[in-house]
Design a protein around this nucleic acid. Structure first.
Lengths: 168, 168
DNA sequence: GCAAGAAACTTTAAGCTTAAAGTATTTTGC
DNA sequence: GCAAAATACTTTAAGCTTAAAGTTTCTTGC
């Protein structure tokens, strides 16, 4: 059914030379995914000692950058997740005493959330650890590798955004 | 509390020159994550026209590579997810008529799953589309970029595995 | 053989995530 | 002013995911 199966190719033939074949891109995507999942799973595992999940950590990171706090909708757009998602995360973090939730003074539909003192303390300890974990995970790369990866991933990101409809 | 806040740095100072600082690695991790999530979300969105989710697609891909089928435990280890996860995925795929489930002839605890004829047909159509989507997403990268990214991600993966306890 | 342990699942409880629909409030356009 | 549209959030239904505990069925070591 596929024409590609009808073309015998020796080992020397470059994938790119066969029109319509994109095995190289497929392999790249698989490796990108594997790599990210591997690291993400490790970070999640290690965060557990602080009794915090990765999405909660991410939410707290947003609040730490904005000490005045922000409404749920802003969290939603900054974290690029649905608003219903934020509702649940905020609920659990309030329960944990890590964030505070108060009505907005200017809009009775909105609520402003911000880190509590304990939340700030907890987040800073986690962030310090987190930075160390990431450094450890990427210890096998030197500065040149990191720069090169940043550049190539930047290019990949742009390419993906273009293919994705962009909206930027 | 942090010593880093006590060191004033002008804009020229390279991050790498400050010992104990790993902002470059942190930025790299963030970009890696953003890039992967961007692509993954797009693939998930496009897969929906086939009425299949990404994990179901992945499971079917495993079965397509092994036409004789395999027990759930093997799916679990190949896909690197929990066994309880596979139970649910298999259940839904059987319901959809895309895979078959039969008792193992040699082990009454085990079940062998394999693609149905419809599953094979559906998977092949999806896989063809999928390859095209990936090609489109990475269209902004040339062959040299792809090779370089593969190599660097390979290095990153190895580094991460080392830091993760490896077990390989 | 048979008891003890291992293995192949399944179940449960909890959390993350989304899309879609619903509620309350504010803003906009006359 | 007021109706209509937009906005901020919540709720619901469905699915993915895990860890931990439970069940059934092998396998192993005497």
């Amino acid at each position: 059914m596929e024409d590609t199966t009808l073309i015998p190719l020796d080992a020397e033939t470059k994938v790119a030379e066969r029109p319509g074949d994109h095995k190289a891109e497929l392999r790249l995507w698989l490796r990108l995914l594997t790599c990210t999942n591997l690291i993400e799973a490790e970070i999640r595992r290690r965060l557990r000692v602080h009794d915090v999940t990765l999405p909660r950590f991410d939410l707290m990171a947003q609040l730490e950058k904005n000490p005045a706090g922000m409404p749920l909708g802003e969290l939603s757009s900054r974290m690029m997740v649905s608003n219903g998602n934020i509702t649940g995360l905020v609920e659990r973090l309030v329960e944990q005493g890590l964030i505070d939730r108060r009505p907005s003074p200017r809009d009775r539909r909105a609520q402003i959330v911000s880190l509590t003192a304990e939340g700030r303390r907890t987040f800073r300890a986690m962030a310090r650890d987190h930075e160390g974990w990431i450094a450890e995970i990427f210890a096998g790369l030197d500065a040149a590798d990191i720069d090169a990866l940043m550049a190539l991933l930047g290019k990949a990101k742009q390419s993906a955004q273009q293919a994705t409809g962009d909206a930027a």
